[in-house]
Every structure is written in C-alpha cells, then in structure tokens.
Design a protein around this nucleic acid. Sequence first.
DNA 1: CTCTGTGCAAAGCGTTTGCAAACGA
DNA 2: TCGTTTGCAAACGCTTTGCACAGAG
Lengths: 135, 135
Amino acid sequence: MLNVVALLKEKSLTVTPQRVEIVTLLSTHQHINVDELYALLYASFPSVSLATVYKNINIMLKKLLLSEVQIPNKKNVYEIMKAEHSHVVCLECNEILDLTINTSELLEAAELQSGFSIDTSSLIFCGTCASCTKS
Amino acid sequence: MLNVVALLKEKSLTVTPQRVEIVTLLSTHQHINVDELYALLYASFPSVSLATVYKNINIMLKKLLLSEVQIPNKKNVYEIMKAEHSHVVCLECNEILDLTINTSELLEAAELQSGFSIDTSSLIFCGTCASCTKS
DNA sequence: CTCTGTGCAAAGCGTTTGCAAACGA
DNA sequence: TCGTTTGCAAACGCTTTGCACAGAG
C-alpha cells in the first residue's frame, strides 16, 4: 500500500485532499486517462474541476511523480512513475499491461546507429488480448 | 525518384494536383508535420486549405500510403509507408532519423509475456543528436 | 499570515465536419 | 455526366489560462 502523503511531500507538492485522492486513484488503477480519473475523483469531490485534474497531472509529470503513456489513436494514460518498462494494449477492450522487456541493448544499438545520446525510449505493442481473441 | 501518380492510383486514390504535391513533399521530407506540410504546399497552391491537408493525410493513412509517428511532446509527423522501423528524435533540433532496429524478437517476447497476439509495435528513442551535443 | 491550490468560465489550439462549387475520370 | 475532392466556415473536443476565493503550512 502506497504512502500517498509521503510521496507528495517527497516530491515537494503541497498535500491537498484532491491530490491525495488523485494519487490514490492512480495507484489503484495502473493506467488511467484524464476522463476516467475525473469521473472517479468526482465520486469523492463532486465540486472538483477538470482543470484541477489537468493542473495536477501536469505538475506531477514535471515532478516525475507520474509518467504519461501515449497510445496510438487513444487518449493518453497516466501511471505512477516506476522503472522503465514497455506496454501492450488490446485494441478491442483497451486493456493495458506492463511488460518487463529490457530495452537497454536496443538503446545501445540505437545510439551506435544514430550517433545520438539517448535519454528515454518508448516501446508500445498493439494487438489483441487473450480473452478478446477467444470471443 | 518516386512515381507519385502511380502510387496514388495503386492506392485507389483520385489523382489531383494537391495530392501529387502532398505526396511529393512527403517523399522529399522524410518526416513532416501538418503545419510544415501546409506551409510547403501553400507555396504551390496559395488557395489550399488546411482542411484539405487533414483530409488527405487521413485518407492516405487509411489506405496505408502514409504512416504516422507520434513523438512525445511534439506534433505528429508523417512519412511514406515503408518497412517497419523505429525512430530517434533530437529533443533540441527536432531532427528525426529512421533506425533499422529489428523488433521481431521483442515482439515474440511481448506476446509470450502478455498472452496477446500483437499486430504493431512502436519504438521511439529521444535524446540529443551528435551536432547538438557538440554545441 | 503568506503562498499555493482550487473551481469556474473563457480562451486557445488542433482537428473534423457540412456544404456548395470545382474538378477528375 | 457522375462521383470525388476542394475550400471555406463553423463546430468540436481537449487542454490551458486568468482570476477570485479557499485552504495548506
């Protein structure tokens, strides 16, 4: 169980009830988009504003508390920052899974091939999950 | 040199001067975003509309004449469809290079790990190019 | 008490849509 | 000629902004 208040303080963010709930929701829904987050947050704070959600996502991205996952043709989703990993998305049911695929060798190959010095990489697979394949 | 008219016909697209110029521009600018494409197109067709650019990009994506590259925090760029490959982007000067990195082993690993059947993958590296590193 | 965050409404930006006229085959 | 494309303007959806008030430290 994540200590949300400690995490906010660690990232130098003022602790507000809205923020605590946002981070709690993110920790219980591994990948969530802005609208889903707003809808869930609304259950606890019926007066909450979408602007608050956006402002908080942006500041948490800047503080590296969150990371953003861009999925082709879908809304961006957000997850609590953790070790680098890749994602696989089901195009039918939108399920998203983390994958522990090591991209470090690829990264070296990419640096060699391009002459760039590379900071970040993003790897995402799109397809159909096991249960959608069956049906 | 690409035969643009033949390519349009092959993809069952009506040949119009605007389309010919759009595909020609795409073939001479490997990675280009909507605004850049519009600006270049405007040089030949001062009456052209942004809507025409969008409509054509969308239909060419659907016909698999083009593919879209999503770069974190930047505008999408478009390229003429070719064999699957990955990209590296310089965050300072926005240069984009194609990389011939083989993701097929990764794809198998991803299928195994997730139980998904995977159709497409996207791999993008962000960093700094050689000349921006020097300066 | 001071500074930051929240909620609201409006603005901003990129993209899509509907329609009439122009054009391709 | 008939069906498609173009250009225009309006609409749309998502995100950001400015401001006054409320809340955190």
